[in-house]
């Protein structure tokens, strides 16, 4: 897509060479996101053939890798890795909020926890969509980003729990009624389907493909964003940091161009796989 590359180049060209970059994500958070999206792609790619085991492409995929046993093995492997990543993340959050007494982890403008402003932002955003009001100003995490976060958080608990219940069914049956094992498959597959449809359509568009970020928001890979982008996307956070004189603390260095290119390749590959899986999922309802 030469068009897209040109856009990207010209966007970079707009930034003055002395333009400053601000850190948004720590390297640990970026690594966790990388683990999250690669295992999620793995889980989706191996879960979908099981969910739609009657479809032509599921059979083809199963044949290609030596049967559904191989698919299930890979599914479980990804699940284990993702579980570990999830536990590391939860430990991180609690370590920051409880052990290090970091402010704004559990509540406040910088927290992932939803508040009244998020509801107002959402309604304001919807009004702005149809031209009935000004565009709301967002803080560190906008309401749809919080939704993404909690959807994944809840999804991992629900899908993970129901998945492990099936994996270790006799063990879970010690404290769950038998019908819960029936329910586990329904919950696991429906919630998994929701996650797949949501991430591969809504998250991709909201975060990467919408005009403000098109074709890809690189901040989750590089950890930094330009001053211009920061001001445009999260004016409240920028203003607060400026007011408190903390902007300097957040200044980072411009990412190396090889790293940006490398991240682009990874990111576009992930999006391509995701969109392919999305098409396959939707096609399974017709074939």
């Amino acid at each position: 897509m030469p068009e897209l590359e040109q856009t990207a180049v010209s966007a970079e060209a707009e930034v003055p060479s002395e333009g400053r970059y601000y850190r948004r994500f720590t390297s640990k958070q970026r690594y966790l996101h990388a683990v999250l999206f690669s295992t999620f792609l793995g889980l989706a790619a191996t879960g979908l053939p099981l969910r739609f085991s009657e479809s032509i492409w599921a059979r083809g995929a199963a044949r290609a890798v030596g049967g559904f046993g191989a698919i299930l093995f890979f599914h479980k492997f990804c699940a284990l890795v993702l579980t570990i990543a999830f536990l590391i993340h939860v430990k991180e959050v609690f370590a920051r909020g409880l052990y290090h007494r970091e402010k704004g982890v559990f509540w406040g403008a910088t927290s992932m926890v939803a508040n009244w402003k998020d509801l107002k932002d959402m309604l304001g955003h919807l009004r702005w969509f149809v031209g009935l009001g000004p565009k709301p100003k967002f803080d560190r995490y906008a309401y749809w980003e919080k939704f993404d976060y909690w959807a994944v958080f809840w999804g991992m608990i629900v899908i993970g729990f129901s998945g492990y219940a099936m994996w270790f069914a006799p063990f879970f049956a010690r404290f769950l009624p038998g019908w819960a094992l029936n329910a586990a498959l329904v919950i696991h597959s429906e919630e998994g389907l929701l996650a797949i449809l949501f991430i591969f359509s809504i998250h991709f568009v909201n975060t990467h493909l919408r005009p403000d970020s098109f074709p890809m928001d690189m901040v989750i890979f590089t950890g930094v964003e330009s001053e211009k982008e920061f001001q445009h996307k999260r004016p409240l956070e920028y203003a607060r940091l400026a007011r408190e004189g903390k902007l300097e603390e957040r200044v980072g260095s411009a990412p190396a161009s090889w790293f940006v290119n490398f991240s682009r390749i990874i990111g576009f590959t992930a999006i391509a796989i995701g969109l392919t899986l999305l098409v396959l999922t939707l096609s399974a309802y017709f074939y």
Binding site: R51, S53, A58, A62, R63, G66, G67, L72
Partner: peptide
């Protein structure tokens, strides 16, 4: 799902 279509 796992068993009817081959492999497992």
């Amino acid at each position: 799902q796992l068993g009817s279509l081959g492999g497992y």
